[in-house]
Write a protein that binds this DNA or RNA. Structure first.
Lengths: 355, 355
DNA sequence: CTGTTAGCGCATTCAA
DNA sequence: TTGAATGCGCTAACAG
């Protein structure tokens, strides 16, 4: 048989067809087969040979060996995406955008979910680095003052030194490429809209205050309030988990502390969903009759809630897509930033302040 | 300098620390370093040397090279997950479950989204195969009669021959390990609940009929209806995209054709969301006063819709988790199946049939 | 344009 | 237990 002689004692192969076999079948050298199949756009293999190689590959059902390519070329066609939770519509939208662009560029996407455990971000970045991912998108916002912030920064630096690219969605410290939604501006818009409708006692339901996303949204709300001559006393600011249940609990707390509150700004839609539930089921307050609610993000089902949720729309899908574009473009000196504008979408959950 | 002599002319290295360097620093051989750091549970390196290696690795900030490991050992610590759309809560939940278990087993997850393009499933499976993924979860249900069903089957077979594992969430043809939600039973439950409440003209809004998930749910509904002495005439069955807008359009069509319909079973919650919107905004029909609606899946926001959506709950997170467990366990002879029970959750969108 | 050759970094034999 | 040697499958020089 012609194909004898390859399987010798220490055969650790999986039986997969190799490029070598394709080359042999096509009657060309290994190098030519490699160029024909994976060669850069620039032609460098004759029509005839290329055809023969392609035919051989098809016939043998050749599947390239990614790890081997990655090892030889010192770069893999993989990008990483680290999120807090894929089940959260915020991250799901970012992931969808990122995957869309990845597909255009023929890249595979590795997704890791930290489930909001801070240490895991570090661990996953290491994993992605070990996989020799081309680039990593840090989709969850950073946590200021986190114990391991330094180690994370070191890990990022190490990854970059090895040629890896990193981009954040949302602000982080450091000199990183960033896709930055206008969190401050969005929150300010929401507050102004409420103010214009006569609301003066506006409560804010925030997520974990370490998150820079939360900080910026809070900052924006605070500053807008200040400019309007209002204020945000500590009793009208409640923080909880960035979840539906977190929002629900926060709303109960808020109205226990400050029953006179006439409007609530939730720092994301998932919390807003819980707030609406609390208002309706736990507190018996009508929206927008007695209380107005504004959320943040404009998740896909925001308009389907009861009542339809007013919110600050963020182009999340675009954010994910832009993030991947940024890290695939040629690097430039200094960090780049893509700003994303927000849009206030008024629906049924906001109305004039009660008399 | 001690570390001279390695960087010669064709240096394609990325500058990353290699295991070789760690070994040198620890004063041991490459093999020992490898065993110390990645060696199987069985001890085989002396305490002292192991300590030295670990210290050296930490000091040099060694990050293992995944592709190299994969190449040498012919298997990567990667599992693939192919979904239709991460933005769809159905798939997001499955993905979350899968990632949870992957984390427990220290595996990286590559997610691919086909965006419902049938050909892409094939392409991504190839990509995962090229990456030498240990296993692949096919989360989107198969499309019966798809043009490339054969090619997909061949691709799966090829992957398995190379040692890859494949599992489906939802039924597919073939002899594959499967995590199978009780789609038929769930649909039947829903129909019976409607029937008991006096509904006799029950419409069904289905997704693309090629999907086996759709077929099974439809089957279940049909059979339950038959057993109850009812029927599902063609005019009361409307198919559309498995999206909110698909559901909305379908509802308009359904009520144009069959204005007497008193209840609608939507074959997933996302469509049900669109149906509720159509009923409220386009058709001016009250729910559950004039029309009852039941969805399928119990997505996280189902209870927050207006009105709160009755639905057939599917343990999607568990499905994703079980799928990964299945393919990580030792293979057994013949395909395995994990059955998942459904639970009918009655909320506000269902009521007695109007008189 | 094509072939020859030398590693990429690591796991794993085999011998000691 | 440890070390020396081999090769996983491929890309990228380099030479023709």
């Amino acid at each position: 048989m012609a194909n004898a002689g390859s399987r010798n004692r220490a055969d650790r192969s999986t039986g997969a067809v190799t490029l070598q076999q394709v080359a042999r079948q096509a009657g060309v050298s290994l190098a030519t087969a490699s160029r024909a199949l994976h060669g850069a756009g620039g032609r460098s293999v004759g029509e005839e040979l290329r055809r023969r190689v392609e035919a051989a590959a098809a016939e043998l059902n050749y599947v390239s060996n990614g790890p081997a390519q990655a090892l030889a070329s010192a770069t893999a066609n993989v990008v990483g995406l680290i999120v807090h939770d894929v089940g959260d519509p915020y991250f799901a939208a970012i992931a969808a955008g990122a995957m869309r662009v990845a597909r255009e560029r023929r890249l595979m996407v590795m997704i890791s979910a930290t489930f909001r455990e801070p240490g895991l971000e570090l661990e996953y970045l290491r994993g992605l680095r070990a996989q020799r991912a081309r680039a990593v998108v840090l989709a969850g916002s950073g946590a200021a003052g986190a114990a391991d912030a330094d180690r994370l920064a070191a890990e990022i630096a190490g990854f970059q030194e090895e040629g890896g690219r990193v981009v954040c969605v949302g602000e982080r410290g450091g000199e990183l490429d960033t896709v930055a939604p206008d969190n401050r501006g969005g929150a300010a818009q929401a507050v102004r809209a409420l103010w214009e409708r006569g609301h003066r006692r506006i409560g804010v339901v925030a997520g974990p205050q370490e998150l820079t996303t939360v900080r910026h949204r809070l900052d924006g709300a605070r500053q807008a309030l200040r400019e309007l001559g209002g204020e945000l006393p500590a009793e009208r600011l409640v923080a909880a988990d960035f979840t539906r249940e977190g929002g629900r609990a926060a709303a109960r707390r808020l109205f226990a502390q400050e029953p006179g509150t006439t409007a609530v700004l939730a720092l994301n839609d998932v919390m807003a969903t819980g707030i609406l539930a609390a208002l309706r089921q736990d507190l018996g307050l009508s929206v927008p009759g007695q209380v107005s609610v504004v959320g943040f993000d404009d998740v896909p089902y925001a308009a389907d809630l009861r009542p339809a949720l007013s919110t600050v729309r963020l182009p999340l899908e675009v954010a994910g897509a832009e993030a991947v574009r940024l890290i695939l473009d040629e690097p430039v000196a200094g960090p780049r930033r893509v700003h994303l504008d927000t849009e206030l979408v008024l629906r049924d959950s906001t109305g004039p302040a009660p008399a």
